[in-house]
Amino acid sequence: MPLLDIRNLTIELDTPHGRVKALERVSLTINPGELHGLVGESGSGRSLLARAILGVPGHNWTITADRMMWDGHNLMDMSSKQRRNLMGSEIAMIFQDPSSSLDPAMSVGSQIIEAMPTNKKIPFWKRSKFKRTTAEKWMHKVGIKNPAKVMKSFAWELSEGECQKVMIAMAVVNQPRLLIADEPTDSMELSTQAQIFRLLSKLNQLQNVSILLISHELETLSGWCDQLTVLYCGQVMESGPTAELLAKPFHPYTAALVENAPDYSGSLTHKSMMKTLPGSASALQHLPIGCRLGPRCPQAQKKCVSRPILCHKKGRYFACHFPNHNEACNDDSTS
């Protein structure tokens, strides 16, 4: 049974320009112990999807879905208190903007300790020291060189990179069943990025923690994730096993991402133009009808003004009227 199973999730936002569909009929499945990558451009709705899973919507959101199942329980039927109980204990998130996610009036150490559950197996007079020792241990694991000093510091005294490491430590200290990492290595040096990814991979392999890794870098996700979901302007373009998706992309957008990846072989001349899709992603108030990639798609035709269904083929999902390799929908396609 999937750990997280979302079908046809739609998020509508009330804006000065009217109601817009920021996410349209998005489906996502994460199995226990799976490392799933969610890739898309800025503004594609990746963070909105993560917040919908956590149950922290904005004041102007309207969320509808056929189902949002967590370990066999419907998240849509849970009360606010039940959803809060899941956050931190079973579902944790590393937010994209760490400095604004930390309380500036509390020390970093007190925030991490506050997020830790009480271990009733430990005598009450030892719990405070145990929590502090555990917090320092995880801060050291995420690459903080002086955990004891950082524990006493406030968020505004730390750099953006250090705040990001603190957020990662706060998320993984409880070893949740699902960890949502939204750009977890943003504003970090390359060596620290590799250390963080190794830590997440170790959590996945040794503790069976499922991870939803969100990024705009396809190359980074392809090296760590078992499954990939490609998102564009709030619609799922394609989803499937990482190796198969990169070797044989069905959707034109996925193919463009693979073909236009930076080439580090040295064949490009200095200041040469990189390959890109023509145009840019549409603004929320000017979203195209049908397939939202239509205005930029090299294979777009008249039929693309109607939204394609999400087709299923041998463990792969794609939403395109004219997919690559002449793939056609099977009978078990989902709308």
Rank of each mutant, 00 (worst) to 15 (best):
M1V: 09
P2R: 07
L4W: 04
I6G: 03
I11K: 01
D14G: 05
H17C: 03
G18K: 08
R25K: 12
R25C: 02
G33V: 06
L35T: 01
L38K: 03
G40P: 01
E41S: 06
L48G: 07
G58H: 02
A65N: 08
W70F: 10
L75R: 05
S79K: 12
M87P: 03
S89R: 10
E90G: 06
I91M: 14
A92D: 09
D103A: 11
P104I: 00
A105V: 15
T118R: 11
N119R: 12
I122S: 06
F124Y: 10
K129Q: 14
E136P: 03
M151T: 01
K152D: 15
F154H: 15
S159R: 02
E162S: 00
Q164I: 04
V166L: 06
A171S: 06
V172L: 03
R177P: 01
D182G: 09
E183G: 07
I196G: 03
F197H: 14
K202L: 10
Q207R: 08
V209I: 11
L213R: 07
T220V: 15
L221P: 05
L228P: 05
V230L: 09
Q235C: 00
M237A: 15
G240F: 05
L246T: 11
A247Y: 00
K248W: 09
P252F: 04
A255T: 00
Y264I: 14
S265L: 10
G279P: 12
S280G: 07
A283R: 13
Q301S: 14
C311M: 13
H312Y: 14
K314Q: 15
E327A: 15
C329Y: 13
D331R: 14
